[in-house]
């Protein structure tokens, strides 16, 4: 189980996260929601140790993540940034590099097998020999997810995994993420912007407002009230074919608040 206790972080004098506390079971998908600048990405970077929290603890099965060495951490926590530069390389090798934390100098048969397995799991088996520069956005995101999974992490951190994808690819990629989370027993944390995608695929929700936790829990924390509170937006929740759908109310005053 992943436990985050009282995690606080500030850039210099500017506080960004304030006493974030939550826990996550293996095999569950947590969506982190909130407006731009609410600290979602910063939270993920703190968990990935790209940033060091000033205060608080992160425990995985009772073990402090901050005490792990860089290589131990890379075998435990995988992080997918918002944007990844393209490299002119085959899909197979783009996934194989995810084995880096487990690799010695020489490639072992299990590294190749594990890479092939991840390509199969993400539906990329037929793409193995293609150059990543020839792929569509949705396919590229699958490659990136396959690479993080090749690390065999216990915790998977995804920063806006379906941004810039068309609606079909968004559903496919989220479906893939949820299935693999369950199948491989990973604790997955995804920063999400699309409330409907989050509601459809996540088990848990963490709502951030100005770096503070506004709510944490199952889908019942997503109410018209909490959304109004977090996004300053009036919405209606509707049931469509067993799915809860968030619909922004028409005729709302533009907020005129300056966002990033």
């Amino acid at each position: 189980m992943l436990e985050v206790r009282q995690l606080s972080f500030s850039y210099g004098d500017h506080p960004v996260l304030h006493e974030i506390t939550f826990s996550l079971q293996p095999g569950t998908l947590l969506s982190v929601l909130g407006m731009n600048g609410s600290g979602k990405s910063t939270l993920l970077k703190n968990l990935a140790r790209l940033l060091r929290p000033q205060q608080g603890r992160c425990l995985l099965n009772g073990k402090e993540l901050s005490l792990l060495s860089d290589s131990e951490l890379s075998r435990t926590v995988a992080y997918l940034p918002q944007t990844v530069p393209l490299s002119d390389i085959t899909v197979f090798e783009a996934v194989l590099i995810g084995r880096k934390p487990h690799l010695g100098w020489q490639i072992q048969p299990e590294d190749l097998q594990e890479t092939t397995r991840m390509l199969d799991l993400t539906g990329l088996a037929d793409y193995a020999g293609r150059k990543t520069t020839q792929l569509s956005g949705g396919e590229l995101q699958r490659v990136a997810i396959a690479r993080t999974l090749a690390q065999q992490p216990a915790v998977l951190l995804l920063d806006e995994p379906v941004n810039h994808l068309d609606i079909r690819s968004q559903i496919d990629v989220m479906d893939l993420i949820r299935n693999l989370t369950l199948q491989l027993g990973i604790a997955t944390i995804a920063v999400m912007h699309d409330l409907n995608m989050a509601l459809r695929f996540s088990d848990r929700f963490l709502l951030l407002k100005g770096g503070r936790m506004a709510a944490f829990g199952a889908s019942d924390v997503i109410t018209e009230q909490t959304i109004q509170d977090i996004y300053q937006l009036q919405v209606v929740l509707q049931q469509v074919g067993g799915l809860t759908v968030v619909v922004p109310c028409p005729d709302q005053e533009p907020s005129h608040r300056h966002q990033d």
Partner: peptide, 23 residues
Amino acid sequence: IWKGWSLNALQWGDETAHSLGVS
């Protein structure tokens, strides 16, 4: 050549490289 895999990881950006255990 000894650091070949680390250099390979760096091609995917600093953040990905860091996540793969490379500084």
